[in-house]
Simulated scan of single mutants.
Amino acid sequence: MDLAEVLRSRGLRLTAPRQLVLEAVYRLRHATPDQIHAEVAGKAAGVNITTVYRTLELLEELELITHAHLSHGAPTYHAVDEHQHAHLVCRGCGSVRELPSAVLDGLARELRDSRGFRLDIGHVALFGLCGDCDTNREAGVTPC
């Protein structure tokens, strides 16, 4: 189902800012509201940051996008798609890599069975050092 159909099913209409924000989230893959705003403003200068935040909230309510907290700053938004994933966040260079949810299936099952807790894998972020930063650290080189 496309954005226009999802909005119509809720009695809402498709606007240019809504379409542009959704396209920016898909294009940028993991982006903060400021990054999304910069992307959208390049195409439609009249779209302000408040509109971006409201649109992100709406798109998340419609379950088209989701967010994760990948740093101490603003949340990072990404598309909801068929392959749910966790995030590997490098504290050295700041890179974000996707981790297939299957890697956490055992943990998710254990949490559900032993504690009755259902893990929301799309919001999971694991912090550490990527291979390059770890190698550089061991070699005494300044982080990437």
Rank of each mutant, 00 (worst) to 15 (best):
F117P: 06
G42P: 00
L99A: 12
A102N: 09
E57Q: 03
V103W: 15
L58N: 07
N48F: 02
C130K: 11
D81F: 05
E82A: 03
H37K: 01
V40L: 00
L62R: 05
A45Y: 00
A102P: 01
L99Q: 09
A45G: 03
A86I: 01
N48M: 02
T51W: 02
E57K: 09
Q35Y: 00
A86T: 01
H123D: 05
D34C: 00
L58M: 15
G94T: 00
E138Q: 07
V124W: 11
L126Y: 10
L107E: 10
T135V: 09
L119P: 06
E110W: 12
L70A: 14
I36D: 09
H87L: 01
G46A: 04
S101P: 01
A102S: 13
V103L: 15
K43C: 01
G106N: 09
E110L: 14
D132K: 12
G116A: 05
E60C: 07
S101C: 07
R109D: 13
L119R: 06
G131M: 07
Y77I: 01
E61Q: 12
G106E: 14
V124M: 09
L104I: 00
L59G: 05
G128E: 14
V103P: 12
E110G: 06
L62S: 11
F127V: 01
V52T: 06
H72T: 10
H123L: 10
D132C: 08
E138I: 05
L119V: 08
S101T: 07
P33G: 09
H85Y: 07
R115F: 12
Q35L: 01
R109A: 12
L129T: 02
I65G: 06
Y77D: 02
G116Q: 13
E82V: 02
V52A: 01
H123M: 10
T142N: 05
V103F: 15
T76V: 15
G128A: 11
V40G: 02
T55V: 03
R137Q: 08
H85K: 02
